[in-house]
């Protein structure tokens, strides 16, 4: 176990949480994230292992699946991001999955490389429209939809959790404060006053 004195630092130092029906913004720290890239010709094997271990069908298009205590985000052809709360036991998906997928997939820890933020509320789509050039309208994008795209020139992976709607956005850690700055700018009309 890690030295308790060595505190983990959030990627977001400047993000102001928001909490209202119209819009809530919340940082998701404490996640363990690992990327999975199937070896050449091994995608089927990887699917089988993941099905067996977690009861999930790895998506072959931009979708999110959940099961067995993890969620998996499509992250390109034969590539996925597996996500779970690190929890009290300091879960480490990289080592877990590396053991399961040894020889058939490259597994890489991304827990710290990605900062994740959760947005929810009736105005979320209006906020996101100010930076994300993907059609998130209910008729075009539904729960468990995934998009790898950008928000105001900052690369993101975005997925929808529910119909509230609630979205989660993962981005590279070093961009977190710039992203937060944009998000504040984009949401100020719904949070002002």
């Amino acid at each position: 176990m890690a030295d308790q004195a060595l505190a983990a630092q959030s990627a977001f130092s400047e993000l102001k949480p928001v909490q209202s029906a119209a819009l809530s913004i919340e940082v998701r720290d404490g996640l363990t994230i690992a990327s999975i890239a199937a070896g050449k010709g091994k995608a089927a094997d990887v699917r089988a292992v993941m099905q067996k271990a977690f009861g999930i069908d790895l998506p072959d298009r931009p979708l999110r699946v959940e099961g067995g205590g993890i969620s998996v985000i499509w992250h390109g052809p034969d590539q996925w991001l597996a996500i779970a709360p690190r929890g009290a036991g300091d879960r480490d998906l990289e080592s877990e999955l590396a053991a399961l997928l040894d020889g058939i997939a490259a597994v890489t820890d991304q827990s710290d490389g990605r900062a994740v933020v959760r947005l929810s509320g009736s105005c979320v789509r209006d906020v996101l429209a100010k930076g994300v050039p993907v059609d998130l309208h209910a008729s075009a994008f539904a729960s468990n939809g995934v998009a790898i795209t950008h928000a105001s020139h900052i690369g993101i992976v975005l997925w929808q959790i529910d119909e509230t709607p609630t979205f989660e956005i993962a981005l590279f850690r070093s961009f977190a404060d710039s992203f937060a700055h944009w998000l504040a700018h984009a949401s100020v009309e719904f949070t002002a006053g």
């Binding site: 890239a37 010709g41 590539q79 997939a105 490259a106 890489t108 710290d112 490389g113 990605r114 590279f172």
Partner: peptide, 14 residues
């Protein structure tokens, strides 16, 4: 034809 997987880990590591 090569069996290679690549992913950026720039941001993972301090």
């Amino acid at each position: 034809e090569l069996d290679v997987q690549m992913i950026s880990a720039t941001e993972q590591w301090a």
